[in-house]
């Protein structure tokens, strides 16, 4: 579905990604794990088009997209839920959701999509009229994911959805992510919470200093000695 070949990228003069290559298969959850500063967020931002692709290629459903602008990538079916939620705090939850349906196709089916999304996130339905900035962290994350789904993405990219949330909420969020995938949206996850994310992932890669060092199924990596030692503290 998504095929990334030898991409490099960074900020200003500083190169962060060094020839990254991986594939995301349709209908699966793929996770990039790694510690702070490894380049996970840069990878996802490059895929979303918020960072320039310096070299290499990104193809989505057989089409080269690395030259496309962010809004064109959304129209082609790739949506990113940014790190730290980034809701529009002074707008209501409902307005936040509506802003997720930007491209014409999503706008046409907005009511239908809203219903589907709210069915998946009943907590969000309870909060529709509330100003987004007043929600709890977990609720904000749910709104952020809902907002991303409003564009009817084929591939949903989540940047650190567990960041700053209580363990019990983290558990709920991961269950919801698995449910999103079961309903037909492919998920690319970037996470520091290695244990939880590996448990829901079909496939995962480990990133260190801008290069991918390990890859395998979620279960394989969870059993890998290096991963255990470096990230799970076992």
């Amino acid at each position: 579905m998504l095929s990334v070949k030898n991409i490099t990228s960074g900020y200003g003069d500083v190169q962060v990604l060094n020839e990254i290559s991986f594939e995301v298969n349709p209908g699966s959850i793929m996770t990039i794990i790694g510690s702070n500063g490894a380049g996970k967020t840069t990878t996802i931002r490059t895929l979303a088009g918020l960072n320039k692709t310096w070299s290499g290629s990104i193809s989505f459903e057989g089409r080269d997209i690395h030259m496309l602008k962010p809004h064109e990538r959304v129209a082609s079916g790739i949506v990113m839920v940014p790190e730290g939620r980034k809701l529009f705090p002074s707008l209501t939850v409902e307005e936040n959701l509506q802003l997720g349906a930007f491209h014409p196709e999503a706008q046409k089916r907005m009511e239908e999509t809203t219903e589907e999304v709210l069915e998946l996130f009943p907590r969000v339905r309870e909060r529709l009229g509330q100003v987004a900035g007043t929600l709890s962290g977990g609720e904000q994350q749910m709104v952020a994911i809902s907002r991303g789904l409003m564009a009817r993405p084929k591939l949903l990219m989540l940047d650190e959805p567990s960041l700053g949330l209580a363990p019990i909420i983290v558990q709920q969020i991961f269950e919801l992510i698995a449910e999103v995938c079961r309903r037909g949206t492919t998920v690319l996850l970037v996470e520091q919470n290695v244990q939880k994310s590996l448990s829901v992932s079909d496939y995962a890669v480990v990133m260190e200093n801008g290069v991918l060092t390990l890859s395998g199924t979620g279960a394989e990596l969870a059993g890998n000695d290096e991963v255990k030692k470096a990230y799970l503290g076992l």
């Binding site: 918020l50 129209a75 930007f102 491209h103």
Partner: peptide
């Protein structure tokens, strides 16, 4: 307003 509150999130939404 979305651009004012968070330009990055607005762009990520297309």
């Amino acid at each position: 307003r979305a651009i004012r509150e968070s330009e990055e999130a607005a762009e990520a939404l297309g």
